[in-house]
Amino acid sequence: MGWLSSLAYRNGPFLLSLAALALLWEVVGRSIDLITLPPLSAVLAAFYDLWASGAVTAPLLDSTLALLYGLVLSLAFGSLIGIGMGLSRFVDVALGPYVKAGLSAPMIAFVPVFLMIFGIGPATRIATVVAFSVFIVATNAATAMRASDPRLIEMAHSFGASRWAIFRDVRLPAGAPYFLAGLRLGVARGVKGLINGEVLIAIIGLGGLVKKYGTVFSMDQLYAVILLIVVYAAIAVGLVSAVSRLLVAEEK
C-alpha cells in the first residue's frame, strides 16, 4: 500500500481539483435545467450503459487500429525526415520549410481531401493521424540529431569511428529524450487528428459517435463519449510517457 499512498500524495492537488470539478458539474447540472449540461451522474450512467451494451466497443477498436497504423507511419517517416534534416544541411533546407508549414497549418482542412482520395474508410483516418503527427515527430528527430556534443563527435572521428558508429553510439543516446518527446507529442496530436477526422467523416469511430449523439441532442451519451475520448487520450499519452521514463532510466 506504500506505493498507493505515495501516488496519492504526488497527485493530491490534481485529485482534489478533479473532485471539485466533478462536484461542481453535478451541482450545476442538477440546479440549472439545461439540456446541454446534464449532471455528471447521468453522464456516468450513460457511459456505463454504452460500455455494457458494447455500443462503443467496435468504434473504440476501429479508432485504436487507425491510430496505431497512423502513428507507426508517422514515427517511421517523421524520424527518417528529421534525421535527414539534422544530419544534412541540404535536406534541412529542402524539407525544413514543409515541416514548419505542416506544424503551423490547420491540418483538419485536409480531411475532405483525404476523404475524396481514399474514400470513407480506415485509410482516411490513418492519413489524418499522419498529417497531424508526422511533422512534430520530424521536428523532434531533427533536434535530436543536433543535440550531440560536437566534442564527442570530434573525438569519435579522431578514433576512426564510422558514421554509423557515431550515429549509433553518440547521436542516438544524446538525442533519445527528443525522440521520446516527439513520440509523446505525436501521440497527443494523432489522437486529436483522429477524432477530428472521424467527426467530419461522421459515421465511424469515436468521432462518429460524437457526431451521432450530438446530432440528436442526446447530451448524456454525447458527454459520455467525450469523457471516453478524454480518458482514451490520457491513457495513450500516459503509456508512452511511462515507456519513455523506463527507457531513459535504462539508459542511465
Rank of each mutant, 00 (worst) to 15 (best):
R184H: 07
T124S: 12
V243E: 00
L206V: 11
A142S: 14
V187Q: 04
P150R: 12
V243I: 15
S158R: 08
V191R: 02
A147L: 11
S88W: 12
G86M: 06
L18Y: 11
S5R: 14
A20E: 04
G82I: 07
V113P: 00
I126R: 03
V93M: 09
I83K: 03
S5M: 13
K252L: 12
P173W: 13
I195W: 05
A55H: 07
V199E: 03
F110A: 12
P150L: 10
I35M: 07
L37A: 10
W3Q: 07
A66H: 08
S158E: 03
G205W: 06
A188L: 10
L24T: 14
H157C: 10
A19W: 09
I120S: 05
S41G: 02
R125Q: 14
A42R: 14
G2S: 15
L246C: 02
K100A: 15
I153H: 03
D62V: 15
L15T: 12
I201P: 01
K212Y: 14
P173M: 11
F14P: 00
A188M: 12
L80Y: 05
A19R: 08
L200S: 02
V170G: 03
V248N: 00
F14A: 14
V240G: 01
I117W: 15
S162N: 06
K211W: 14
A188D: 06
P150W: 12
M107Y: 10
A58L: 14
A19I: 14
A234C: 04
D33K: 13
A161S: 15
G96N: 05
V199H: 04
L4I: 15
D149V: 13
A101Q: 00
A188P: 00
I201Q: 07
K192C: 04
L71Q: 11
H157V: 13
D220V: 12
G186E: 06
V129K: 04
Y98D: 03
T143A: 15
E250G: 00
I166W: 05
G208E: 03
S74N: 09
F167G: 01
L34Q: 11
S79I: 12
G193H: 06
L40K: 04
I126F: 02
F110T: 10
L115H: 04
D220K: 14
G2C: 01
G193T: 06
S158M: 13
L172I: 15
M219T: 14
M116Q: 12
G78W: 05
E198F: 08
V210G: 01
A52E: 09
G160T: 11
I229C: 05
K192Q: 13
V56F: 09
G186Y: 07
S31H: 10
E250L: 14
L18H: 08
G238K: 09
S41E: 01
V43W: 06
G205D: 04
R89E: 14
I108E: 02
R184P: 01
I120N: 00
S218P: 00
M116K: 12
W164N: 05
G86C: 08
V210A: 01
T64R: 02
V56I: 15
V216N: 02
V56E: 01
V225G: 01
Y9N: 10
F132K: 02
R125F: 07
W51H: 05
F114T: 03
L44D: 03
I203Y: 04
L4M: 13
F132D: 02
K212N: 10
A138C: 09
A94Y: 09
T139A: 13
V199A: 06
S79C: 11
S53I: 10
L185N: 11
I226S: 04
